[in-house]
Design a protein around this nucleic acid. Structure first.
Lengths: 217, 217
DNA sequence: AAGTCAAGATTGTTCAACAAAAATATCTAT
DNA sequence: ATAGATATTTTTGTTGAACAATCTTGACTT
């Protein structure tokens, strides 16, 4: 399904693979990525790898220290707070100016159903993915390619923060129902109320995450 | 004043220089950037230049075609519309949730005064710069590093679009007064009204730009 | 004028090299 | 033994050259 990597420049493919490893927790925050080691791991040249590193650094997923190398970024409380500030602005505004029958609403519904399925199957990563898909779909309501791309960058950074947590299993599950209620409001055309509900969702989610992070830190 | 380029990686410095050339119109939309020519021009290796190209491509300022090279991005009507959609969301929301005495308001005032000075001196590029500074300051009201960085990327893309225009001299001048009135409302603590005024500003600015682009196209 | 095919030029990627900086190990002197 | 100074090793930063793959150009044919 995700064989869409052919023809792209090597640096892009590399960045994609490393990004997946960062999001999945295979690479831990703070970890150092040696050019020699990683380029050997992927069987590519150091030069190509450096191009990929630049991309990921620009995404905020890696951190570049001069003459010392690149490290997996370490999200802090400030990071989380900033990300949620962005989410509040983007997601609430997107909902508030949405219109009836927008294609993104179908995507929202699909994500909610997928999350429900995953929850019934106790598939925690599946819930996380579906949750992310739901909120990306919300941003798509704004009909802006640049906004959507920006949001995926932010979402990746957020998922990196999840890597800091010990048991993130039950972190998404309680929110499936809130997503469903946001969806219901949107489908009924009550976009202002949907935005308000989203605001509550984000407050709650942020607080939960910050608390988990504090305990894990 | 802008000697802040020491110590940074070469690719970053290169990207910054090329970005400046793109914004200043020294490089025109559609133009092809040959790796050999540009790397010779800056006296750097092709490898380093390619890193810089990747950065700028990610910023939307360059366009990468496989096996064909990189070109200066060509903004279209769709680009403008998307950028203004982003601006409306960011700038209006930032104003609406601003608070009295926010440091960014001082920056807004400084930009307005600078624009006024530039207009009196018939310094058109100066007006453009001050105008950009004003709107960046508005976004700073949101207190989000990620949002601010995103906005500078969008602003750079917008300035690239100005490059398509023949006489952009009088494009910013009429808006100096609107900025001043937005500032006045913000300083008086009337943030909702300021946001509404900003919305009108953006509508007008977008329409003006689209029309100019149509005539120049 | 349209199509074919052989140069010619450009990108994509790798490798090897070396200077500069940082990390690590070694050696004092107290 | 410990703190500090020095030498050694490892890494990053950057370059130049090389070569395959691909695109462009231009000559040649029909």
């Amino acid at each position: 399904m995700s064989e869409s990597a052919e023809g792209l420049p090597l640096a892009d493919r590399l960045a994609r693979e490393i990004r997946a490893m960062l999001i999945s927790g295979e690479l831990m925050p703070g970890e150092r990525l040696s050019e020699a080691a990683v380029s050997a791991r992927f069987a590519v040249s150091r030069n190509s790898l450096r191009e990929a590193f630049r991309l990921l650094t620009k995404d905020g997923l890696l951190r570049h220290e001069a003459n010392r190398g690149v490290f997996v970024a370490v999200p802090t409380m400030a990071t989380i707070i900033d990300i949620y500030r962005v989410r509040r602005m983007l997601e609430c505004a997107a909902l508030r100016q949405a219109w009836n029958g927008h294609p993104a609403i179908r995507a929202m519904r699909a994500a909610v159903e997928e999350a429900d399925r995953a929850r019934r199957g106790a598939d925690w990563p599946g819930i996380g993915n579906a949750n992310m898909a739901f909120h990306a779909a919300v941003v798509d309501l704004a009909d802006s390619a640049r906004l959507a791309e920006f949001y995926t960058r932010i979402a990746a950074e957020l998922r990196l923060a999840f890597g800091l947590l010990h048991d993130q299993e039950h972190l998404h599950a309680p929110f499936v129902d809130m997503n469903a209620s946001i969806l219901a409001l949107a489908e009924a055309g009550h976009f202002a109320e949907a935005a308000d509900e989203m605001s509550r969702y984000l407050d709650l989610s942020e607080r939960t995450l910050l608390k988990s992070l504090e305990q894990a830190g």
